[in-house]
Nucleic acid binder design. Structure first.
Lengths: 153, 153
DNA sequence: TAAATAGGGTTGCATAACGAAACCAAATTC
DNA sequence: GAATTTGGTTTCGTTATGCAACCCTATTTA
């Protein structure tokens, strides 16, 4: 049967996963952050099937994570560019990257750290922070609204 | 055909998604962060099919995101608890939650913000930060290793 | 002591999603 | 005007997902 959808879930994590929670969408967004814009480039760089790429690009455009821009230059008809909503996934992608680097280091190459273009220094590890910037763990936070912990789907 | 796997990808985002990139795994982790530990509770609170829950729990245990703890109390035989690796997904989950709250606000209820248990204040929005704590956008960072941008799969 | 209930699964089946390769059509280059 | 490039759609076989039913053990309840 069909995958369960979370469109109207009262859990914002579930709603977020509904848009970018599949195997490919976040990788497409990541690739777009690297500068990829054209269909064939996504296809080749990700090694994704064309029909799946079609579907995902359309869905990301529907959800306003990407926008489809018509361009007239030599053969290519349009490009897929990140919207502000799409660029706003940057913290999510970086958090995932750091988690992957920490707990599943690459077999061959080392962790590929991101660096501040202005200073050349590595970026900080992502942390959940209190109002005054102190790092917080799971146990350090609570949710005022208790009912939100139930029934995500 | 089978879903494409990213186990040996040189992209850490792809490797991370290989472990928690499906529709349910991150929600299970989230639920575990809320304090859920038993099979039936995950099942009822998430509304997930039992066989899928079985599969996901086993996979999360395999990947050391959860661990299975035997407990002897009244009928229940074991619990699923977060490991350090699992708790380390906190920034990922919070980043996703904030993105979902910002761009897909819940129809009925408002954004359910997390608060610092010590002060009662709302936590900060997650940002990628430079070495001295300044927020950075996609355009503000670069990767020293250029080849890492290609071929994630 | 028999019966009901709870916890933690497993099995079968129908449907939806995925992946590879082939096919298509408009625009462009040779 | 034939071959290429770009951006898809179609076909088809495999896999994943969801629902419901079943199973086994341990504990309550009658």
């Amino acid at each position: 049967m069909a995958r369960k959808r979370f469109d109207d879930s009262n859990c914002s994590v579930a709603r977020a996963l509904n848009e970018v929670g599949d195997w490919w969408s976040l990788l497409i967004v990541l690739q777009a952050m690297y500068g990829t814009r054209r269909f064939v480039d996504f296809q080749q760089e990700l090694g994704i099937a064309r029909n799946i790429l079609c579907d995902r690009l359309a869905r990301l455009v529907d959800n306003e994570v990407l926008r489809k821009v018509e361009v007239g230059e030599h053969g290519s008809r349009h490009e897929y560019r990140l919207t502000e909503k799409g660029r706003d996934l940057f913290p999510v992608v970086v958090a995932l990257r750091q988690w992957g680097d920490k707990w599943n280091p690459a077999p061959h190459c080392g962790a590929l750290d991101l660096r501040d273009r202005a200073t050349g220094q590595s970026i900080r590890p992502m942390t959940v922070q209190s109002a005054d910037g102190e790092p917080l763990s799971v146990r350090d936070v609570f949710m005022p609204d208790a009912e939100s912990t139930s029934k995500t789907g």
